[in-house]
Nucleic acid binder design. Sequence first.
DNA 1: CTTGTTGTAATAATGAGTGTTACAATGAAA
DNA 2: TTTCATTGTAACACTCATTATTACAACAAG
Lengths: 145, 145
Amino acid sequence: MQISSRFTLAIHIFACIDTFENEYKITSDFLASSTNVNPVIIRKILAQLKSAGLITVARGTGGTAIAKPLNEITFLDIYNAVECIDNGKLFHFHDNPSEDCPVGKNIHYILDDKLLSVQNTMEKELASITLEDVKKDTAKYLKNK
Amino acid sequence: MQISSRFTLAIHIFACIDTFENEYKITSDFLASSTNVNPVIIRKILAQLKSAGLITVARGTGGTAIAKPLNEITFLDIYNAVECIDNGKLFHFHDNPSEDCPVGKNIHYILDDKLLSVQNTMEKELASITLEDVKKDTAKYLKNK
DNA sequence: CTTGTTGTAATAATGAGTGTTACAATGAAA
DNA sequence: TTTCATTGTAACACTCATTATTACAACAAG
């Protein structure tokens, strides 16, 4: 199973806000048409990003803004904000390995640290990329319109 | 979304084969009772591991064996064998970003390399862990029965 | 040819993800 | 204070992957 598109959507949203905030009011409808995703889905993601303190959303009047400097928002922050994985574990483990089998009884002791090391490695890489990096590439590609 | 339990199941299966192959015939029913997962699911995973050349399965008579030295089978081999992710991409991308929006039009150019770098980092870590490592820990924990 | 097992099809149940409609709550501006 | 665009959120539907389950033909060894 792949990691939910909420993650790429969220980054797309940040790129839009940063690019267009001086030009347009950034509403869920605006973001919906850039991403081609339903505005209610956008609002749910905005709510998650807001809970995480990454953006502000104006009720009533509408409009979204980024709450922190771009170099202080990492992909990991966004990944965690939009809850891409259940209970914080990247790998889904089968539920009830047998207590009667020596291997089944110990499989979690055997595997958990190895799975966690993979997950930590991945999250460290996510933490090394920031929205500042996205901004740079966005600027580069938008030059050619 | 989490990565399918087929992955942890497959590793559990290898641990069982290695631990019990001299003691029992390793059938899908045997593995089903250690993992507490339906035997048909086990057979599907066995078929995938077999296609990848990681194990042999005896038709008719039954029984499974590991096809290579344990230190030559990495977590990445297993991960790829059981097809945990669609079309080889870890991150699901929203389908049709707008061609009319400068950001939407370029979002793949902006993001794809960054997502790939995260995926590559994770796969490199998966490749660094082998079934030999699992065997060591299994032996350690099975001592205490 | 009997027996236990694999390979596989068919079907169902569950759960996540996403789309969609609808509407109350909000807050700025008229 | 009324209007109006927008957010927040509930409710429901649809699709898809995962996992469970039953059933049975194909198979290989005794």
